[in-house]
Nucleic acid binder design. Structure first.
Lengths: 227, 227
DNA sequence: CGGAGATTTGAATCCACTCAAGTATTGTGG
DNA sequence: CCACAATACTTGAGTGGATTCAAATCTCCG
């Protein structure tokens, strides 16, 4: 399926938005849209045929595996996010869909060429890359938020933030894109601990759970300082 | 002090190495060298007069502070590394010298202009940025290397790697650029725990300590799998 | 040589983990 | 559409490793 930028929900905010209409159309000819269902893999660490992609809708995770085969989640990608290696010969990590997702995929060679032809696109990607760096470091800061209570609380807030359209306020009612196992994994704690903290938060009437994944934040202020 | 690229130890590997001699000289006219002693700050989160810099020699840390004022180390910068905000209005984190360091500093406006004039420089910085991203994620993966023993061992290896000139083999004898407190901080454990692990490693004759900071790695293989 | 800061070491406590069992949710085939 | 199986999640009890608190020792700079 080829690209239809006209109706793209991220046409004004993704990296390609810095291009002129004409340039964008040219780039679009090289790209393809792709749908991934939850759990499907975009590419795997070490893959030969490297691709790059902008996420249009849904959510992705970037994962690595330690020597014992344990998964480790390194990053979450949200719409407008960009994934893929432009310089290394092959991707270092796996990229997997967390929810049904819509992507805009380019062959690496085409993307490399586009970078050479459009300096503005390179600058836009540099900007994105720096943002990714900030996000990775934010996640790093989360990692040692001392107690498990604090870590889970802050992860919840971060996810609420990410689920929100508004860049600054968290969404108070949303569906977790992550399983308990994935949350535990991101924080370096066990599934049981995450579960217990959520139960405690609910009992303290700071959140409410709707089924396994639905979250209502009742008291954002107390969530912030829960320990 | 103005720049003397001719004798710069990173002239062939820093981002500016992609420029022609002529272009580089032009950029050099905008830059200044700067020396930082251990503990000195390059810039602070929220600073007005944003600067960018390439690290020529020494080592830096990028740090954030949580609401209680606890320091959190987000990244280590080694020679050829680049720090500074090019897009955000002000830096998000503090940058502090871990050891005496030599830098090559540019005003943000000059760097922005250089990016517009030299697409190759932008590409080089994009590449660096992606490398930084990989490093941040590697650190993230370190974060939950299960036991404290494993975490400290792997941090030691990472530091030995960074101290090495060769890109692939660790240096077996080097000085830690970090205090116990800084190591503890990076791993989300306590100072005492780091100290105990080092003692255990020494008793197992896997490493040897020379004073408070000197490290000899006697048995890299066993260090790798210490648990 | 002195003294401040950094590091090491020890003992007791506590929080998160492990192990285990039960409950809810999701997805699939009849 | 329902029943069932598979998977995800919750909850409980007991254990262990890292923390906390406290004190001794080491290092390094002036």
């Amino acid at each position: 399926m080829s690209l239809t930028c006209e109706t793209c929900p991220v046409r004004d905010s993704a990296a390609c938005s810095v291009l002129t209409e004409e340039e964008r159309n040219e780039l679009a000819r090289a790209g393809r849209t792709r749908h991934l269902s939850r759990g499907e893999t975009l590419f795997t660490a070490g893959d030969e045929d490297t691709a790059c992609a902008t996420l249009v809708s849904g959510a992705l995770k970037i994962t690595a595996y330690d020597e014992d085969g344990n998964e480790r989640i390194l990053a979450l990608i949200h719409p407008t996010g960009f994934v893929g290696e432009m310089f290394a010969p092959f991707p270092a990590h796996d990229v997997v869909a967390l929810t049904d997702s819509q992507l805009c995929v380019f062959a690496r060679a085409d993307m490399t060429r586009a970078l050479e032809q459009h300096p503005a696109l390179t600058r836009a990607l540099l900007r994105r890359s720096q943002e990714d760096l900030h996000l990775a470091r934010k996640l790093l800061a989360l990692g040692s938020g001392f107690g498990a209570n604090e870590q889970v609380s802050k992860l919840l807030l971060a996810l609420a933030q990410a689920a929100s359209d508004s860049p600054c306020h968290p969404r108070l009612q949303f569906e977790l894109p992550l399983t308990r196992g994935e949350m535990a994994n991101m924080l370096g704690v066990t599934i049981e601990t995450v579960s217990r903290v959520l139960t405690a938060l609910e009992r303290a009437r700071i959140i409410e759970r709707k089924g396994a994944r639905g979250i209502d934040i009742l008291d954002p202020a107390r969530l912030e300082n829960f320990s």
